[in-house]
Each structure stands twice: as C-alpha cells, then as structure tokens.
C-alpha cells in the first residue's frame, strides 16, 4: 500500500511540474537581458534585469493593448453576469408560453461553436458598422448561452420561500430579483464570471477579424503581431510580453481556483 502511494505521488508531482514548467521557464528567461545567454544555466546577476519589460512598455503599444483588454474584458464580464442571470432566472422561475422552446433554443445555440459561423458573424458585425470598434469587440460577446444554462440550473434549486417572503414584505418582482436573488447567487456568479473573463481575455479568433488598427488591438492580438512580424527581434523581449498576457488570468485563477475546480462549481457543467 505504502509503495503504491509513492508511485501516485511521483506521477502527480511529475504532471504538476509539467503543467507549470513552461511558464516558469518563460518567467525566468524574460529577465535575461541578452538572447545569447539563454539555455546557459545560471548567469552572473548583472545579466538579469527588468530591461525587457521596460523596452516593450516603452517601444510597443503593449500598455495601450493591456488597457484595451482590461476595458473590453471587464465590460463583457459584467454584461454576462447581469444578462445571463436575468435570462437564467426567467427560464427557471416564470411559467410563460414558449418557456420550453426558449430553453431548447439556449441549448441549441450553446452547441454551435462560433468557429463555424465566423464569416456570417463578421458580415453581421460589418452590417452594423462595428468593424474596428470597441462596440464590435464588446457587444456580440455580452451574453453567453453557457452562462444562462449555468444560472438556470442554480435557480431551479433555489428555495422559493425566500422570494415569497420578500414579496410579502412588499418588494416588486424587480426588487426581488435585484435585492434578493442576485446577492444570494455569489457561487455560480463567480464560476461564470471567472470563466467568461478567462475566455474573453484569451480570445483571439473573433477579435482578430473584428479589429485591424493596432490602437484597437487587445493584448493577444498585439502579442501575436509582435511575434508574427518579428517587430521585436529579441526572444527574451517577446517572452516578457508573453508573461504580461498570461499573468492576469493566472493570478485570477490562483485567487479564485475553488470556483473553477471544486465539485460544486463543475456540477453545473454536467
């Protein structure tokens, strides 16, 4: 029994290291000042520094792209939290004609990956004159059927008695939703919020066809351009740009990982 545990530890530690080693390698190399010093083991201390970061902040539009990404992703996340909860609550609580069909509609569009409707989505955004604008980067992504589905599952199990008590105390339907329901939905709102934030922060495919001027770029588009055009010829400088892109989602994840990896959080996915 003891021996077997030893083997389990070995496998799990190996997989854990495999999962983070590339990022530690990247972080380490982003502090190396000269490309030629890569792959050489430990160097004398004067060969490390923050110059790569200073360089990409001052010589590229990374600061602008970071601000764009923060603005776009936060707006999308807030929109999703509000709109998806609203729709999820309506589907779980109110008996109206067509409720079942609407739920199937949510499931159906959840099954259709945006990847296969890239061209008509692009045409639609172009029709609405939103190409190359913040509106184009934000508005199409303000809702997500997965979020609606998640919230509906949560509200189906939500005790009705709380809402009824609030109604007896004289709250309107709107009051019940905004003052009772939303504050009590912290768990699924966090799960949904983090996933939506991560997906949109990382998003490349659609943004890459929606905007084309570098001023409107989000961070992934900017970093892609940097690596793709050899605009920055230095590897370690490019790696410092990678660090800037991946750091926010990793920090968010480490702080709130229980909302993504706990059994409670994933039961909604099933």
């Amino acid at each position: 029994m003891k021996n077997k545990h030893w083997l389990i530890y070995l496998i799990l530690i190996f997989l854990s290291l495999l999962a983070i080693a590339p990022f530690i390698w990247t972080l380490y190399n982003s502090f190396i000042l000269n490309d030629l010093d890569m792959n050489k083991g430990f160097l004398s201390l004067d060969k490390y520094g923050l110059d790569n970061y200073i360089y990409i902040f001052t010589r590229s539009k990374v600061l602008r792209w970071t601000l764009n990404s923060i603005f776009v992703t936060l707006t999308i996340t807030i929109g999703n939290l509000v709109f998806n909860s609203m729709a999820g609550y309506a589907l779980a609580r109110f008996n109206f004609k067509g409720r079942k069909i609407l739920f199937y509609y949510v499931l159906a569009i959840m099954m259709v990956p945006t990847q296969i409707i890239l061209i008509p989505i692009f045409l639609q955004i172009a029709n609405l004159n939103m190409i190359n604008s913040y509106a184009g980067l934000i508005i199409p992504f303000l809702i997500n059927p997965f979020g609606v589905f998640l919230m509906r599952q949560f509200y189906l199990d939500f005790p009705k008695a709380i809402e009824e008590a609030a109604r007896i105390d004289g709250l309107s339907n709107f009051g019940v939703f905004s003052r009772i329901i939303i504050p009590l939905s912290k768990g699924p709102l966090m799960t949904q919020g983090i996933l939506i934030f991560v997906w949109n922060w990382n998003s490349f495919t659609l943004p890459s066809i929606i905007v084309n001027s570098t001023d409107k770029f989000t961070l992934p588009l900017g970093i892609y351009q940097i690596t793709n055009t050899q605009y920055i010829a230095s590897v370690t400088k490019a790696l410092s740009a990678m660090v800037l892109t991946l750091l926010p989602t990793i920090i968010l994840y480490v702080l709130f990982q229980k909302y993504l990896t706990s059994s409670k959080a994933t039961s909604g996915i099933k």
Binding site: L12, I13, L15, S16, A19, I20, P22, F23, W25, T26, N29, V198, W201, N202, F204, L219, P220, I223, Y224, T227, V235, A238, L239, A241, M242, V243, T245, L246, T249, I250, L252, Y253, V254, Q257, L260, T261
Partner: peptide
C-alpha cells in the same frame, strides 16, 4: 488540491502565450 490546481492551470493561459512559449521551447 495543490496538484489539481497546478494541472488545471494551462487551461486558463492565453493560447497566444502558449504558442509563443512552445515555439521557443
């Protein structure tokens, strides 16, 4: 829990960063 957290981590990392890092590695 620590192993679980670490093994899940690549899922949240930006694909462009992963692509850039992998092509260097």
């Amino acid at each position: 829990n620590l192993y679980k957290t670490l093994i899940y981590l690549p899922y949240v990392v930006t694909p462009i960063a992963i692509g850039g890092i992998i092509s260097q590695l």
